[in-house]
């Protein structure tokens, strides 16, 4: 059952990679890479269940956090042109 779930997640990851390579705009690529990172977190938890090691769940948690921070940083960079910009509406990110 876990192996079938891992295969489904790998299929979804490969589709996300296809969209990231094909994507006509930069936002399509960012969306696909975000989905890829989310599926990677799930794959790490599956590996933890397969290997029977609960330590890997910490790695999955850290990976989820890094995925979110990187997503926000890349979006801000492509929205404003620099990471130090305060934002157009004064609220920042």
């Amino acid at each position: 059952m876990i192996v079938a779930a891992a295969l489904a997640i790998l299929v979804a990851m490969s589709m996300a990679i296809v969209r990231a390579l094909l994507g006509p705009t930069i936002y399509d690529r960012i969306l696909a890479i975000n989905l890829f990172g989310t599926k990677t977190v799930m794959l790490i938890t599956l590996i933890a269940a397969l290997a029977g090691r609960a330590d890997y769940l910490d790695i999955a948690l850290v990976y989820a956090m890094i995925n979110f921070i990187a997503m926000i940083a890349v979006l801000k960079f492509f929205e404003y042109g620099s990471l130090g910009h305060a934002g157009s509406d004064g609220q920042g990110e």
Partner: peptide, 22 residues
């Protein structure tokens, strides 16, 4: 639960490929 979650993930990935717009 695992199969439902994975099928939702695959459906989302198919939509990511097949839909026409960002």
């Amino acid at each position: 639960l695992l199969l439902a979650g994975c099928s939702l993930g695959v459906i989302g990935a198919i939509g990511l490929i097949r839909f026409p717009d960002f």
